[in-house]
Design a protein around this nucleic acid. Structure first.
Lengths: 142, 142
DNA sequence: CCTACAATCTGTAGCCGCTACAGATGCAAG
DNA sequence: CTTGCATCTGTAGCGGCTACAGATTGTAGG
C-alpha cells in the first residue's frame, strides 16, 4: 500500500477507471475529446485510451466548472486562461461575473414565473368550479 | 370598418399573418404542426396553409403556456385537458403545481450556484494576486 | 400580360450537452 | 479456450427550435 500514491501517478488508467475517478461518464469523456475540450490521450497496443494524472485533473476541472453552470464554451475559455497565470486572473473574474449576471437574470425570471403560476394555482379550486382559471389565462375559450 | 370583426373571423389567414398575430415564428408554427401540437390546416389551391380563428387561439394558448415554462410535452397535456372541462380542472392544477415544484428546485439550485460563484469572485482580486481562487477551486494545479 | 419581388413551400442540417444504441474488437480470469 | 466484461467507432436521438437552400406561388407595378 506504500506504493498506491506512486502507482496512481505512474500507471496509466483506462477510460472506465478515469470515469469513476472523475465522476464523468465514459461517453462524455469521449465526447469531450471529440470536441477538443481534452486532448486525445495516447493509446495502448489495442487502441485503448490511456489516461494519466494530468487528464484526470483537467476532467475534474471541467466537471466542477460545469457544476457551476459554465457552458462548455466558457469552460474552454477558462481552460485556455488556466495555463498562463498572474495576468489572467482578471479575465477569469470577468468571465465569472458575467456568468453570475446571467444566473441572476435566470433567477429573476423563474421567480416571476413561480409567482404567476402560484397565483393561478391558488385561484384554481380543483373540480369544484367549472371554469378553470389556469386554462382561462392560457387563452382557452372552452 | 364595421366589417373588421366579421372579416377576421371569416377570412383565413396565411402563415405570416398568423405568426404576427400570435407572436409565434413561422418556422415554429410549421414545427408545431410537424410534431402534431397543432392540427394541419386546410390549404389554398397553391398548397399554402390557411388558418382561422381556432388555430390562432390554440397557438396563443401554446405560446402563453411556453412563457410559463411548460414543456411541449406538458403543453400537449394541457391542450388535451382543455377540451373537456369541469372534471379536468383538478388535473390542470396538479400539472401546474408539479411544474411550480420544478421551478422552485431550479431557483434553489441557481441560488446556491450564485452564492458559490459570488464568493469565489469576491476572493479573486483581479491581477493583483498570482493565485486565482477561482481557477484553484476548479481544481487547477497550475 | 409581363416582370419583379415578396411570401410561402419542402426538406434538411445545425445548435447544446450529452446519452444511447449497434456491432466490432480487446483483454483478463477461470 | 471460452466466457464475459471493457472498450472501440460511428451514428442517431433528446428538446425546442432556428436557419438555411432551392422550388414554387401570389401580388403589385408598369
Amino acid at each position: 500500500m506504500a506504493y498506491s500514491h506512486t502507482r496512481s501517478r505512474a500507471t496509466p488508467a483506462a477510460i472506465g477507471a478515469l470515469s469513476e475517478r472523475t465522476g464523468v461518464k465514459i461517453e462524455t469523456i469521449r465526447y469531450y475529446e471529440r470536441i477538443g475540450l481534452i486532448p486525445a490521450p495516447p493509446r495502448s497496443e489495442g487502441r485503448r485510451r490511456l489516461y494519466d494524472e494530468t487528464h484526470r485533473q483537467r476532467l475534474v476541472f471541467i466537471r466542477r466548472a460545469r457544476e457551476l453552470g459554465f457552458s462548455l464554451e466558457n469552460v474552454r475559455r477558462l481552460l485556455g486562461l488556466s495555463g498562463r497565470h498572474t495576468q489572467t486572473c482578471g479575465e477569469v473574474k470577468a468571465l465569472a461575473q458575467h456568468h453570475i449576471g446571467e444566473i441572476r437574470t435566470k433567477i429573476r425570471n423563474l421567480k416571476r414565473l413561480e409567482r404567476t403560476l402560484s397565483e393561478l394555482a391558488a385561484r384554481c379550486q380543483g373540480d369544484a368550479v367549472p371554469e378553470c382559471p389556469i386554462l382561462k389565462t392560457l387563452g382557452n375559450v372552452r
